[in-house]
Simulated scan of single mutants.
Amino acid sequence: MANWVTGKVKSRTQWSDTLFSLVVDADVAPFKAGQFTKLAWHTDDNKVSRAYSYVNPPGQDSEFYVISIPEGQLTPHLADLQVGDEVLVEHSAAGFLTLDEVPEGRDLWLMATGTGVGPFVSMLAEGSCWQQFTNIVLVHGVRFADELGYRERIRELTQDRLNFQYVPFVSREAAPDVETGRITHAITNGSLEQKANLTFSAEHSRVMLCGNPQMVRDTLNELKLKGLQKHLRRKPGQILMENYW
């Protein structure tokens, strides 16, 4: 049975028409960067809950990155929350998209679409990744440039890190300082490796994928063609992944 606590909204950020973040003061259990918990809303006859990754590093107020789905059962309620409002938060976190699950390697590729960038922001802020890997590349794919939430936060967290690269992709419009198109295409044609000046290899590359299931599936398939495999505890590989619904 889930153990729920009542959190209070401390602040909210509206990134685009459909994307927003909530910072919530809630007495939650310790978690690892990359893990998720659940937010919930009570209706008259039941409780509606969905999983959301922590964007904040451990030890700070809980922060969640949400896409509003008009016909959804939960997100319209979350979208209406204002500072001071209450929301239910599951006390314990879960999930294995964490750095301690990643086999030793040289290059860490963090690849996300949409709100899937959240757990990677948590990892960059938590900081152990900088000791664990020589090179870190964060690749973030969205449809429109205003959906590149946390872009400034990422810049602030990494401004002194010479071994870090941020590669945003926008698929449905041309915009300054971004790559045009999809992450999967850039893996296929080699342009992502060229941009990062790093080559995918089973020896050196470790990849964490987080985003919509189609992107995760397609990217996994493209990386397999580069010689990488899904990581399992019983059979170590190079790719760890989490679907975002």
Rank of each mutant, 00 (worst) to 15 (best):
A51E: 10
R143S: 10
L228M: 07
L138F: 08
L157W: 07
A29K: 05
F133N: 05
K47I: 15
Y166L: 03
E203F: 08
N212W: 07
S205M: 06
G127S: 00
S68H: 15
P30C: 01
N56T: 03
P70S: 01
R233I: 14
V207D: 10
L81W: 06
N243I: 08
R172H: 11
T75Y: 05
E156S: 11
G237R: 03
A112Q: 12
V83E: 14
V9N: 00
L225H: 12
M111A: 12
G141T: 11
H231Y: 03
E104Q: 15
Y150H: 08
Q131L: 11
T75M: 01
H204D: 15
R151E: 13
E101D: 14
K8H: 05
Q165G: 02
N163Y: 04
K235W: 12
E147I: 00
P70L: 02
V117D: 08
T113Y: 02
G84E: 02
Y244T: 13
V5H: 00
L220R: 15
L232V: 05
T37A: 04
P58R: 09
R161A: 13
D100W: 10
A79E: 15
S68L: 11
V5T: 10
S49H: 10
I154F: 02
S68D: 15
D17I: 04
P58A: 08
K195R: 15
A79I: 04
Y65D: 13
G114P: 00
N3F: 12
N56R: 02
Q165A: 03
H77V: 03
Q194I: 03
K47F: 07
K10P: 03
G72C: 01
Q60A: 12
E179H: 14
S92Q: 13
S68E: 15
V167I: 12
G7V: 01
L157S: 03
T43P: 05
N56D: 04
V137Q: 14
A93N: 00
D45G: 15
H204I: 09
A174I: 10
E173I: 03
T37P: 10
Q14D: 13
D160N: 14
N212M: 09
T180R: 14
D146Q: 10
V48F: 08
A125M: 04
T98H: 00
L192G: 09
K8S: 07
P76V: 01
V83F: 04
S201H: 09
E173K: 09
L223Y: 03
Q238F: 08
L162H: 12
E63H: 09
Q73L: 10
P58I: 01
E203A: 11
G95E: 00
V5L: 01
R153S: 07
D45F: 13
F164C: 02
P213F: 06
E71R: 11
F133H: 02
E179R: 14
I136E: 09
S128T: 15
D107E: 13
E71K: 12
P176V: 04
